[in-house]
Design a binder for these strands. Structure first.
Lengths: 128, 128
DNA sequence: TACACTATTTATAAAGATTACTATGTAAGA
DNA sequence: TCTTACATAGTAATCTTTATAAATAGTGTA
């Protein structure tokens, strides 16, 4: 557990902002001026393998990383990219249905809702 | 509607393989030896804007494109990347729940199931 | 203490997907 | 015919992520 590794994990735990690898890199470069981007990626990979962190890909942009606390889903703002957690009963049923229909051995599923966050809604309203 | 554009759309309609931009490029380069990759991307963007085509990003790999016919969900093989459609009643409820919990104006949602396809299952079984 | 062994970091190169840009071509309309 | 708008081709550039090699630090053992 190196200082860099600890700082990256700490950042993920304390910040609930679903940061990108670059966000983390920039946020910590004040404390670790010599830290490499590769270090961020290496550690994120380690955290992912251990199951501490979840990686999320949206569209063409960079991946975002989320410290795994409890099962929850995400809603994403199309305008500003903000990610917000929300709770909903986990959809186990769809996994078994999909498995039966396709013959796949199911491992997991991924669900995201897209829309416009309150801040961007009011901003868009003010424009007109 | 140029010949290239028509060919790309035709390929998306007839092939149900959820191709990547490069798949399309390679498949059509016999008929259009001078066609540019940029043309494929340009047209896919146009199709997306019109709503004819849906773009899907999985992990770090290339985007896959799906001609929109009816509402359906996808199941994706972790081993070979194959994408298979399956039908399931559309989850409208989760959209309204998410909207109420977060204050977002909801536009759509995205749901995918991940696992191992039958072919890769038997291949993995033979290995042991 | 000295020595190896291992894992991590840094730095940089490289890969891969996508976009940007410019010049060329082409088709429709006045 | 002239013009205008748009699509294409070709290529350069961007951006994210991974691979690689050298440097570094930590740990345990003799």
């Amino acid at each position: 557990m190196t200082p860099q590794r600890q700082a990256i994990l700490e950042y993920l735990v304390t910040e609930h902002s679903h940061p990108t690898a670059d966000d983390i890199y920039k946020a910590l470069s004040a404390r670790f001026p010599n830290m490499s981007v590769a270090t961020v990626y290496n550690n994120l990979r380690v955290f992912k393998e251990v199951g501490l962190v979840q990686e999320m890909n949206y569209g063409d942009a960079s991946s975002r990383f989320d410290f795994v606390t409890s099962r929850h889903y995400h809603i994403i703002c199309d305008a500003c990219g903000k990610v917000v957690d929300f709770n909903y009963p986990v959809l186990d049923e769809i996994e078994s249905v999909a498995s039966q229909l396709t013959g796949f051995k199911v491992d997991r599923h991924r669900l995201e809702v897209y829309g416009t966050c309150p801040a961007c809604q009011s901003e868009q309203a003010h424009k007109h």
